[in-house]
Design a protein around this nucleic acid. Structure first.
Length: 237
DNA sequence: GCGACAG
DNA sequence: ATCTTGTCGC
């Protein structure tokens, strides 16, 4: 008799996704070339979405939500959420295989197609230039921006704690993102291209939707929403 | 072999 | 990310 199999931490079936590390990496390598880096006309952005996932250390359930905001008023106009079973573990570099399956279905339920999506994680600032923001962007073919709270890869010079200041995030001689200070006196966030945007457009848009706090308002609200879901609260607004 | 390591 | 209590500061 054997105890629980330790095959590397991976779980069972995952239809359109992956069953193991090697397969997941192969999928990333096959999709990475679809990423488009190009300017995004911010004046044409009417609908902006933010996606996030929360979970407990205990149960394997994922609390996922996509919030839709109107611009330039930045008002929350719609929320689509769901509780899904986690079928893939968290592995640095493979975050999308854990969280994206729970988020993608939610976009189909939105009444408006987002002009851009803010994702809590990296875009091209990733070992294979294909973080969760890029993955979601390519699969939906919608512009996406990676907004992470910490670094996955790359080196950078310290950023002055002044709103709007930024330094380049570099890996292997490539500029993979920006370390951006969104508010005076706060730690910077890690911005990177997800899909169909460039760093200039991403920086401008993120600063535009970052008001009183360190994180962009849509990301904050999404984070708050999924956390409330997990705690079984009703305070959503 | 030893660290690093989005969420 | 989550698990946790108080605590320092505007």
């Amino acid at each position: 008799m054997q105890g629980p199999e330790k095959t590397g931490g991976m779980n069972r079936q995952f239809p359109a996704w992956a069953d193991n590390y090697a397969e997941a990496v192969a999928i990333q390598n096959s999709l990475r070339n679809r990423v488009m880096v190009q300017p995004l006309d911010l004046d044409s952005v009417r609908w902006l979405a933010a996606a996030d996932v929360s979970f407990s250390k205990k149960d394997p359930r994922l609390y996922a939500a996509v919030l839709l905001f109107s611009l330039p008023d930045l008002q929350l106009v719609e929320v689509c959420d769901q509780i899904a079973e986690a079928t893939f573990p968290y592995i640095p570099g493979l975050l999308s295989f854990r969280e994206a399956p729970a988020l993608l279905p939610l976009f189909d339920r939105l009444s408006q197609k987002p002009d851009v999506i803010l994702v809590d994680g990296q875009g091209m600032a990733h070992p294979r230039r294909f973080g969760i923001a890029s993955h979601i962007g390519v699969l939906l073919d919608i512009p996406t921006i990676g907004c992470a709270k910490s670094r996955l890869v790359g080196t950078f010079n310290a950023v002055p704690a002044v709103r709007g200041q930024w330094t380049e995030l570099v890996e292997d001689g490539e500029v993979v993102g920006r370390v951006l200070c969104t508010r005076d006196g706060v730690k910077p966030i890690f911005l990177s291209v997800g899909h169909r945007v460039d760093l200039e457009s991403a920086t401008e848009l993120v600063l535009k939707v970052t008001q009183k706090y360190r994180l962009p308002e849509p990301i904050r609200r999404a984070h708050s929403w999924v956390n409330a879901m997990r705690k079984g609260e009703q305070k959503c607004r």
